[in-house]
């Protein structure tokens, strides 16, 4: 128990140091404590990309997501944390309508992407997914060559530029180019797990989406590969809006700017700056969860 306390403290400290370096979000742990009214719905300094209004999901008769109201800012890393079965993946999959593939799933309320309700009649989920890329829990490259894996999204989206150049750029951005540049024709499945996941990230960013959803992208990876993916997420946030589900609180503290905490029952309990959530959560149960008392 005391163990988890100390690790949490350590990581939040280093996170605070990191954000001082990056500037905009800088806030010493002490300052958050002094704030008089840390409102739950902090007005994001950046423009909102995703806005959920009373968003609910039912699987059959089971309520997987209680009404969620949240606004996710652009070009930041938002972490979604919470115990197993709390609806965090369900929420993530609402954003690019991957829940459509679950026959029993029903979505209520609104989820706006740049002001348009993605569950509106006029929205084609295929078009939506071209703006919102996704990286999954288990690396799932196609059983095709590395090149074809990255080029697939470009080809089906009718990219009319230089596909070769775009593939190279994506692999570079995914920090994989130097490792695979001489074996672009070999199968993506021949790579190690960590490389496969970076290949999947390259595949997701190749068609240049605006938002990248990540569903526990490092949970199947070893620590070294995890560290590489985390570094990568940091860099991706300069260009893309990243929304990442993780069950690893240290990871959330390390890499995210904003954190959303879901707790059992599919309820979004708290959302705000990562530093504040980890240093001074408003909700007692969030504090218990973050300090490792349950979950």
């Amino acid at each position: 128990m005391s163990d988890s306390y100390s690790t949490t403290d350590e990581t939040t400290d280093s996170e605070a140091a990191n954000s001082t370096d990056t500037g905009t979000e800088a806030r010493r742990p002490g300052e958050t404590l002094d704030e008089t009214t840390p409102s739950i719905q902090e007005i994001p300094e950046r423009e909102t990309v995703i806005e959920a209004t009373d968003l609910t999901v039912h699987y059959g008769d089971v309520e997987a997501l209680k009404p969620v109201n949240v606004r996710l800012p652009e070009q930041e890393v938002t972490a979604i944390i919470g115990p197993s079965g709390c609806g965090k993946s369900t929420f993530l999959r609402c954003i690019n309508r991957m829940n459509d593939m679950v026959d029993a799933a029903r979505v209520g309320g609104e989820l706006r992407y740049r002001g348009t309700n993605v569950y509106g009649d006029e929205v084609d989920p295929v078009a939506l997914r071209r703006r919102i890329g996704m990286v999954f829990q288990k690396p799932n490259p196609f059983p095709k060559s590395i090149y074809d894996n990255v080029a697939y999204g470009l080809k089906i989206q009718g990219y009319d530029g230089d596909i070769d150049a775009r593939v190279e750029e994506s692999l570079r951005n995914a920090a994989l180019w130097d490792e695979v540049k001489n074996q672009l024709d070999s199968s993506g499945l021949d790579l190690s797990g960590g490389q496969q996941q970076r290949l999947c990230i390259a595949r997701a960013i190749a068609p240049d989406p605006e938002v990248i959803l990540m569903d526990e992208p490092a949970s199947a990876l070893d620590p070294v590969a995890t560290a590489k993916v985390e570094d990568l997420i940091d860099e991706l946030a300069e260009e893309y809006t990243v929304i990442i589900v993780t069950h690893n609180m240290q990871q959330a503290a390390r890499i995210s700017d904003k954190t959303a905490v879901f707790l059992t029952g599919g309820k979004l309990v708290e959302f705000g700056d990562t530093n504040r959530i980890f240093e001074n959560p408003e909700n007692q149960r969030v504090e218990d969860y973050i300090t490792g008392k349950f979950g």
Binding site: V126, R129, F136, Y152, I156
Partner: peptide
């Protein structure tokens, strides 16, 4: 064919 393969394709905007 694992669902993860289908999801991967849907994820990059395949019909």
């Amino acid at each position: 064919v694992p669902d993860s393969q289908r999801h991967a394709a849907y994820g990059v905007g395949a019909t």
